[in-house]
């Protein structure tokens, strides 16, 4: 089952990954990370993730540290 791993403390909530994900599987977390930002959170209840890694490639913080397919 494809999935991504986000290092939430590197995220600055620029939301580019959300824009890049073809399946809209990345949401803004309700709580904040160590720099006080509502970080990006991967939610894939129905296993739609393709493991295409467009999110990881687009992330300006290299905060999406792993992508599995």
């Amino acid at each position: 089952m494809a999935r991504i791993v986000i290092n939430k403390d590197l995220c600055k909530s620029c939301k580019i990954c959300m824009n890049a994900c073809p399946k809209n599987l990345i949401k803004t977390a309700s709580c904040t990370n160590s720099i006080g930002v509502h970080y990006a959170e991967f939610e894939d209840k129905n296993g739609e993730c393709l493991g295409c890694a467009l999110c990881a490639e687009s992330c300006p913080e290299a905060a999406i540290v792993e992508v599995y397919r």
Binding site: N7, V37, E57, P60, A62, I64, V67, R69
Partner: peptide
């Protein structure tokens, strides 16, 4: 599952960038 993307090693581990979001 296979790893298809990994944060590059040339980037210092767990260190964020200094740029604006």
């Amino acid at each position: 599952e296979t790893l298809v993307y990994k944060r590059p090693e040339t980037l210092i581990k767990d260190k964020g960038f200094t740029f604006c979001p």
